[in-house]
Measured scan of single mutants.
Amino acid sequence: MGFKLLSKLLVYLTASIMAIASPLAFSVDSSGEYPTVSEIPVGEVRLYQIADGVWSHIATQSFDGAVYPSNGLIVRDGDELLLIDTAWGAKNTAALLAEIEKQIGLPVTRAVSTHFHDDRVGGVDVLRAAGVATYASPSTRRLAEVEGNEIPTHSLEGLSSSGDAVRFGPVELFYPGAAHSTDNLIVYVPSASVLYGGCAIYELSRTSAGNVADADLAEWPTSIERIQQHYPEAQFVIPGHGLPGGLDLLKHTTNVVKAHTNRSVVE
């Protein structure tokens, strides 16, 4: 069995187990497998329904001669939608809004960016022009300005110390501490036991640490421990890039980060 097929099978099995364990909360999309990078042309966006009122959005972007996937989250909030992270750029984010209108038909009224990198804030200006209120932590807003990236308009308070959590509509926002970046936030959907790890969490097929220019490698494993301790009931975990899975993604990420750190020390 090929690795790609095995990865998709694991996603399907995880979703099936969740649907059985929580039949009222989960209505997993039966329309197909989780979209992969090879299936999404740059400039297009796919939506994948995880649970009743919960979707991931998947886009792709060219970077350094390669094409990478990027995940975000959409959560229903009454007759409105909360968006977590842009679709990595203005063109993708405009396509995301169009796809949401086509498939869901509810307005996106608020959006949260989970850290300051372009795959999370690139497209904020498109959201703002569409009347979406954009939010991020003060740290993310400051770092985005320093980096020359787009800056969300509103500040999220109460997320300055490791372990801080605040309720934001249908989700809980959690600051686990520094990891992929010093400002990275985690998003949890309690009604569906869905954990969105953003770039602080890796997919299972990833074996290298990737972009760690703004990471705190020493603190990252401790931050992941905080996530595990705060959300032990999480059933569906979405990484910032690639295929979702279960809580095993947290341990896998820790292993990859520690291996990278150990290699760096040896070198």
Rank of each mutant, 00 (worst) to 15 (best):
P23N: 05
L250Q: 04
D164E: 14
G240S: 13
V37T: 09
F116P: 00
D183E: 08
I104D: 01
G72T: 09
G148D: 12
E101F: 14
E219Q: 13
A165N: 07
G32S: 09
P232H: 15
L243H: 14
S205K: 02
R120H: 13
E80A: 13
L97Y: 01
A178H: 14
K258F: 13
A215S: 08
T254R: 08
I40D: 06
F63D: 03
A19I: 14
Q61N: 06
T153V: 04
V256E: 13
S160G: 12
L5K: 03
D29S: 05
P176E: 01
S162C: 13
W88F: 11
V124D: 15
S223G: 11
L217C: 15
G65I: 05
V108C: 00
Q49D: 07
K8R: 06
H117D: 00
Y188G: 12
T140H: 00
P170W: 13
S22A: 09
F168M: 03
P69S: 02
S155P: 12
G242Q: 03
F116L: 07
G32F: 00
L47E: 08
V189A: 12
V108E: 00
V28P: 03
L185I: 02
T261E: 07
F168K: 04
L156V: 01
G242F: 07
P152N: 07
Q49V: 10
Y188Q: 11
V54D: 03
K251Y: 14
S62H: 03
N92W: 12
S31Y: 15
D64M: 03
S161T: 06
A259P: 09
I186T: 14
L143W: 10
G32R: 07
L250E: 12
D85S: 03
G177C: 05
P152G: 14
Y231D: 11
E233Y: 07
R141V: 01
S160I: 12
G158Y: 01
A133K: 14
K251C: 15
D119K: 01
V189W: 11
A234P: 01
G123N: 15
E99D: 09
T114V: 00
T182H: 13
S208G: 12
W88H: 02
M1Y: 15
D79N: 08
N262R: 06
A133I: 00
N71G: 06
E101N: 06
A178G: 10
Y196S: 07
V28F: 12
V189I: 10
G158T: 11
V124K: 12
S155H: 00
S137K: 14
V75H: 02
V67R: 08
Y196D: 06
R226D: 02
A111V: 08
R128Q: 13
F63T: 12
I74L: 05
F3K: 03
Y188K: 14
E80M: 11
L83T: 14
P190S: 06
K102D: 15
V256W: 13
L81Y: 10
S223Y: 02
G43I: 12
R110C: 03
T261D: 03
V121Y: 15
A130S: 15
T60V: 10
K258V: 12
V265S: 07
H117V: 00
E80Y: 12
D248W: 07
S27L: 04
P69F: 02
P170S: 06
Y48F: 04
T14C: 10
A130H: 15
G197Q: 02
A165I: 05
S160P: 07
T222L: 10
Y68V: 05
I238W: 13
V194E: 03
A25M: 03
E80Q: 12
V126S: 15
E44T: 06
Y175C: 11
P239F: 02
G122H: 01
A178F: 04
Y68S: 03
I224P: 02
P244G: 14
N92F: 01
A213T: 10
D183F: 10
I224Q: 10
P152M: 15
E33I: 07
F168D: 13
S139E: 03
V75T: 06
R46Y: 02
H115A: 00
